[in-house]
């Protein structure tokens, strides 16, 4: 599967891998949201170290999780963005909303 999640003392970490596009983002969203519901974490860490490609669907995935976590007072951290993905992350302006 292209999402692996680990929960540890209030923090849910989702290790994403492969390509994130409109097709794969839907499946990733389902897994992450399911785990948020079960674990109720205070913090969600989205780890991009194994992501090879991402289009604006990845930005949608981040924004959607940010909204969901904000609803229950939680936060989202984005970590290990590979160099080729930096442009789209910068373009989206999400760096002003959360820690990248």
């Amino acid at each position: 599967m292209n999402v692996k999640t680990v929960y540890d003392s209030g923090t849910l970490t989702a290790l994403l891998s492969g390509d994130i596009d409109h097709h794969s983002a839907r499946k990733m969203r389902r897994i992450i949201d399911g785990d948020i519901e079960i674990c109720r974490p205070e913090k969600l860490i989205l780890d991009f170290r194994r992501v090879q490609f991402m289009d604006s669907s990845g930005i949608g995935l981040i924004m959607g999780r940010y909204r969901l976590m904000s609803l229950c007072g939680g936060s989202v951290d984005i970590v290990n963005i590979p160099q080729p993905l930096e442009r789209i992350v910068k373009l989206s302006g999400i760096t002003t909303l959360m820690k990248v």
């Binding site: 983002a25 289009d55 604006s56 669907s57 930005i59 949608g60 442009r87 789209i88 373009l91």
Partner: peptide, 14 residues
Amino acid sequence: GERAGLGFAVMQSF
């Protein structure tokens, strides 16, 4: 929903 509304902006800048 989950669409960021960035599609054309990405095409334009990339």
